[in-house]
Design a protein around this nucleic acid. Sequence first.
DNA 1: GTAAACCTTCTTCTACAGGAGAAGGTCAAG
DNA 2: CTTGACCTTCTCCTGTAGAAGAAGGTTTAC
Lengths: 137, 137
Amino acid sequence: MLIGQLADALGIPTRTVRFYERKGLLPDPERAENGYRVYDDTTLARLRFIRTAQAAGLTLAEIASVIGVRDDGTAPCSHVDSLLEAKLAEVRQRRRQLAALEAELSELLERSRQLDPADCTAGEICHIFTPTETVPS
Amino acid sequence: MLIGQLADALGIPTRTVRFYERKGLLPDPERAENGYRVYDDTTLARLRFIRTAQAAGLTLAEIASVIGVRDDGTAPCSHVDSLLEAKLAEVRQRRRQLAALEAELSELLERSRQLDPADCTAGEICHIFTPTETVPS
DNA sequence: GTAAACCTTCTTCTACAGGAGAAGGTCAAG
DNA sequence: CTTGACCTTCTCCTGTAGAAGAAGGTTTAC
């Protein structure tokens, strides 16, 4: 199997396969006499693994570390487990941040609806962002 | 006011002030005889505006566009409004994606708990990511 | 025998918001 | 008069996952 066929089998560009190779996610492949990369099904499986792990939010560096553990002859399960735990915590935190941002945006939009552009001054740049003044007694 | 004092007033590095200047977010400042940048309070206000807009998730390029409209003599309110609408839509979509990712991660972690690392084979790299086979009849 | 469709390596670019270092000028205090 | 704290410009680096182009060799099909 040549690189184009491998790439087509997964619907990814050939560039990406070479990129993964340089990142250490794929082993240096066999070469035909003309220098072309030659692959077998194990590479296909490895690429599928990479894509699945990516779908779980792992970065290529993290996936490379998992592959590294496996290549050391160790089952990377516990490593994967901790990566997933960390990722889950990250995702939850990010979700919280985005929830706050969504609330902030809604508030700004609501304010926008109640403001008249004619009242917007150059000094403020745009009064939608001007903090609502809590009028003191 | 020199750049260090301006930066300290907002708790940002002086580098950042120069960076904003080069990005067109701040006007070219006055210079003292020795070449030092000299600022007044309008720059302080502009920096506060930038920080507020950033907190709302706008990119520096978007903020620059808002400032550009204002510098054209137009109230940028409607422009800001559409930016905020777009940002809100983005945030909502991203939240949905993250919710799906969180579910996926939870599922993988649950699977991890039920699998024995001793069953993990080299071909799979890690069986936590191996799609659960729906056994056909 | 040539054109299309492959393949090779190399380097540079993208978005994003700065961070970091080099190499040097200026100013106030001791 | 020197030390330390400022200030200046310049250029490159960070992480992420590729995309893009240059410039060339190879193979297949007609």
